Amino acid sequence: MQPTPKPSGKVAVISGGSSGIGRAFVEKLHARGYIVITCGRDPAKLEKLAQDFPGVKTGICDVSDTAAIRAFADDVVRRHPEIDMLISNAGGMRELDFTRDDITDQDPTEEIRSNLAGAIEWMATFLPAVRRASPSAIVVVTSGYAMAASTRGPVYSAAKFGLRGFAKALRRQLAGHGVTVTEVLPPLVDTPAVAHRSGTKVSATSVAELALTAVANGKSEVHPGAVRWLPFGLRMAPSFIENMVAKS
Rank of each mutant, 00 (worst) to 15 (best):
A148P: 08
M93R: 05
L96F: 04
W122S: 05
N115S: 01
D102W: 06
P135H: 10
G91Q: 01
L127S: 04
V141K: 05
F98R: 12
F98C: 11
S136W: 01
D97I: 03
D101Y: 09
P108G: 11
R132A: 09
F126N: 09
D101K: 05
P128K: 04
D84A: 02
V141T: 12
D107T: 10
A117M: 10
M93E: 00
A117P: 00
A129D: 00
S136F: 01
S134Q: 05
G118Y: 05
S136Q: 01
A137I: 08
S114Q: 04
L127T: 03
I112G: 10
T104A: 14
G144V: 06
P135K: 11
A124W: 09
Q106W: 07
R94I: 02
Q106L: 15
N115T: 01
E121P: 05
R113C: 07
T125S: 09
P128S: 04
A146T: 10
R94T: 09
R113D: 07
Q106N: 03
N115H: 01
F126V: 05
I112F: 12
A129M: 02
L86D: 07
S150Q: 15
A146K: 03
F126A: 02
E95T: 13
V141E: 09
M85R: 06
S143I: 12
P135R: 11
A146D: 12
N89I: 03
Y145N: 15
E110H: 13
I103Y: 15
L86K: 06
L86A: 02
M123H: 04
Y145L: 15
F98V: 11
